[in-house]
Amino acid sequence: MPSPADTPRDSNSASRANGAELVRFDKVTKRFGDVTVLDQLDFSVDTGKHVTLIGPSGSGKTTILRLLMTLLTPDEGTIKVDGDYLNHEERNGTLAKAGEKHVREVRKKIGMVFQQFNLFPNMKVLRNVTEAPVHVLGMSKDEADQRARELIELVGLSEQLDKYPSQLSGGQQQRVAIARALAMRPQVLLLDEVTSALDPELVAGVLDVLRDIAHTTDITMLVVTHEMSFARDISDAVLMFDRGKIVESGPPDKMFSEPEHERTREFLSTVL
């Protein structure tokens, strides 16, 4: 395992070589009570890649995203993001539990969009998007404002700047949530079943926005979804999960057309 010193600390996205390892799970185990959700999981995602996690519910896909967002902490194993330990800090040559400040610093590289949008109901659309850049990144109000307007235009909601989330449809709220996550300029974007809570006619609008982002930016994506055609469109790799382990992985064409593993075939036959 390379030590953090081997990885360039300058993580400016332009200078970062495409293809370098951005996320690494090393023997990560997560239990909820007696249930082992992730079992000694190893996997990595390279910079700029779009990786989709599929599998039956309860197979641990969402847990992976929540671990990366530090909404959960692993019981065993380590997670690295861009060369830095996420939950650990090296002190006197040994790994110790990381302090709040270290976690916040590494976490800045990650953004997340939730199944239930989780917009802040007490803020209008524009402020939902500017709040974190201003108060977390220390961006000036004007700059944050201008960038937020661009992002809101990107997701097609320029008309709605002055509305509260409760005045928007689910699809519109989710697109604001995408703009809000992108405003922090994360290196990795986590998408956690972002269309599962939407009415069917609103799904396409959200997926179009995400396709657009996937094809026009170099952002790394980790996607949990049940929208298999979307997964096929945007993914560089698909990982099939079952009971906390990766059963099979490969490029989307192979995974969806000629999966090798029986469990994958079974799962795909139920969702395709």
Partner: peptide, 9 residues
């Protein structure tokens, strides 16, 4: 959780 994900203290 949304607040954590956006890096707020």
């Amino acid at each position: 959780e949304a607040g954590v994900a956006l890096g707020f203290t």
